[in-house]
Every structure is written in structure tokens, then in C-alpha cells.
């Protein structure tokens, strides 16, 4: 199977032609440097994304608390993760780095607060 992807490591944005055989990256062309091969490996076999979104918060200046995953999670879980977090509500005060949801969707990543919000 062949896939065409754009390397995201630098502004060059190399168009990579990736050949996948038996669940492995067999060949990468179009890359300018070694990072391209590395990127093709993860992006084709195990794509992940850091999720940043918000949860509702009560008793503070704003309606929302920004949060993120503590590490990247599989790409196909991103939408589900954001949908899940739409139901979560916390109460101020909250500190940056505080865990809001542990082990989100079984990914072993936690959802952590990215801002200090004081109680009113």
C-alpha cells in the first residue's frame, strides 16, 4: 500500500511517498532528512495527537477551563475525547497541571488543567 503524507517537522513540508508492506514502512521517498523517515513511521503506523480543549468550570472569572492530554493519544480517539470532556464540570480554584480526568478513554494519558483559575 502507498500513502502520500506531508512531513510536519519543518516549513519545507516535504511530500513523502510511503510504501507500507505487511504492516511495516518498507520505503520512504521525497524526504530531505532523516526526520522524514521517522515521521512517516509514526504517522502511518501509529498516528497520535496532543488534545487541547476545555471543560466547564464554576465559580471563577470564565466559563471554561483549558485542558490538555498529558501525552499524545491515538489520533482516532481525538474527537471522542473532546466529546467526553464536554460533559465534565469542575469548580475553581484549579491549578495548572492538576489532573481533571485520569486515564482518559483508557489511553493512559490524563487530562490536565493548563491554567490557574482562582475562586471568586
Amino acid at each position: 500500500m502507498n500513502r502520500e503524507i506531508i512531513c510536519i517537522n519543518c516549513p519545507l513540508g516535504c511530500r513523502l511517498e510511503v510504501t507500507i508492506e505487511e504492516g511495516k514502512v518498507a520505503k520512504v521517498t521525497g524526504n530531505t532528512c532523516g526526520k522524514g523517515v521517522e515521521y512517516a513511521q509514526t504517522e502511518c503506523l501509529n498516528p497520535t495527537r496532543t488534545v487541547t480543549t476545555t471543560v466547564s468550570i464554576k465559580n471563577t472569572l470564565y466559563a471554561l477551563l483549558p485542558v490538555r492530554t498529558s501525552k499524545p493519544i491515538p489520533k482516532d480517539l481525538v474527537t471522542k475525547c473532546v466529546q467526553y470532556l464536554r460533559r465534565i464540570e469542575v469548580k475553581a480554584p484549579v491549578r495548572t497541571g492538576e489532573i481533571i480526568v485520569e486515564n482518559i478513554l483508557g489511553t493512559e494519558a490524563d487530562i490536565i488543567a493548563t491554567k490557574n483559575l482562582e475562586a471568586l
Binding site: I6, I8, G13, R49, K75
Partner: peptide
């Protein structure tokens, strides 16, 4: 914009 954003914000 950054290539990363073209890929991760639009193509995704």
C-alpha cells in the same frame, strides 16, 4: 501557517 497546522487542523 505552519505545515503542522495544515496537516493537523485541516487534513485531519
Amino acid at each position: 501557517g505552519l505545515t503542522r497546522n495544515i496537516v493537523q487542523c485541516l487534513q485531519d
